[in-house]
């Protein structure tokens, strides 16, 4: 697994094995989970998944930047960015299993 990137297909397969749904329904449920989270974040509301982490939306103020090639000043518009904070459970899990016995 470590050599391969996990995708929706792998999540679908896991849901398929875990619950007695068809593959296509499993796929649509995986999509629904991501969609529900995305919709909530798009309204500016944070999403907290216990023992995994939280996603929150941060407002960035407008600022003046510079086009590095031409040197002209440009205004970088105010924007919202997503911030993910991993929970301690997830951090511990990553360090418990991966800090030892890894190739680097």
């Amino acid at each position: 697994m470590a050599d391969r990137t996990m995708t929706r297909a792998d999540l679908t397969e896991a849901v398929y094995h875990e619950v007695g749904l068809s593959r296509s329904e499993s796929a649509s449920l995986v999509e629904s989970v991501l969609e529900e989270i995305s919709e909530t974040l798009a309204t500016g509301e944070a999403v907290k998944i216990s023992s995994f982490g939280s996603f929150s939306v941060r407002e960035k103020a407008p600022r003046v930047g510079r086009n590095l090639k031409t040197g002209e000043e440009v205004t970088i518009s105010p924007r919202r960015v997503l911030v993910f904070r991993a929970s301690h459970v997830l951090k511990d899990r990553i360090n418990g299993n991966s800090a030892s016995g890894r190739g680097f």
Partner: peptide
């Protein structure tokens, strides 16, 4: 509940194994 737990557990497991998880359009 089992579906939601499975999704996040799988993502966590992949990361714990040193892997990456790519969900196009989401992150």
């Amino acid at each position: 509940e089992r579906i939601v737990n499975t999704v996040f557990d799988e993502i966590g497991g992949a990361l714990a194994a040193g892997g990456r998880v790519e969900l196009r359009g989401f992150g």
